[in-house]
């Protein structure tokens, strides 16, 4: 499983910059970052090289942070790579709550990170099908 941080952000000017500044000043390197936004607020989701340090510095800077475990898989960076994984889960009626991905150009691999409605079942299916699951160390 991959640990992700979620940070609450009001929808006002300069907030993402302030978060970025906090990370920069503490030499935190981000691997992923995405934002789910609504009219009034956003939830920033990110994974850092050193998640526990990132969490500490963000909390010290006054941000409200929570952590979540996501399922991370590595697939071939080619058409259909994601579809095969989602088909496995979809066939068992597992719903994806949210998902994001990024490609490793050098290795021609893609990393897919997601949260599902039934985590236990999803892990079982992925294991049964020999899909490689990732943790924070290898993403």
């Amino acid at each position: 499983m991959v640990e992700q941080m979620a940070v609450f952000m009001e929808n006002r000017q300069g907030r993402i910059m302030e978060l970025a500044k906090t990370l920069k000043e503490n030499a935190i390197d981000l691997i992923t970052l995405s934002i789910a936004d609504t009219k009034d607020f956003g939830i920033l989701r990110c994974i850092a090289r050193d998640n526990s340090k990132a969490q500490k510095v963000l909390k010290d800077a006054g941000f409200t942070v929570t952590t979540t475990k996501l399922i991370g898989v590595e697939v071939a960076d080619e058409p259909g790579g994601m579809c095969d994984i989602l088909t496995l889960l979809g066939d068992k009626n597992i719903n994806i709550e949210y998902l994001y991905s990024y490609a490793h150009v050098a290795t021609k691999k893609a990393i897919i990170l997601f949260k599902v409605s039934d985590e236990e079942l999803a892990l079982k299916i992925l294991n049964e099908n020999g899909i490689k699951l990732l943790d924070n160390g290898v993403i």
Binding site: F8, F41, K115
Partner: peptide, 15 residues
């Protein structure tokens, strides 16, 4: 003000 136990990574939960 957001309390720690209000926060979730899922927007729908916060909404």
């Amino acid at each position: 003000e957001l309390a720690q136990n209000m926060l979730s990574d899922v927007v729908a939960n916060v909404e």
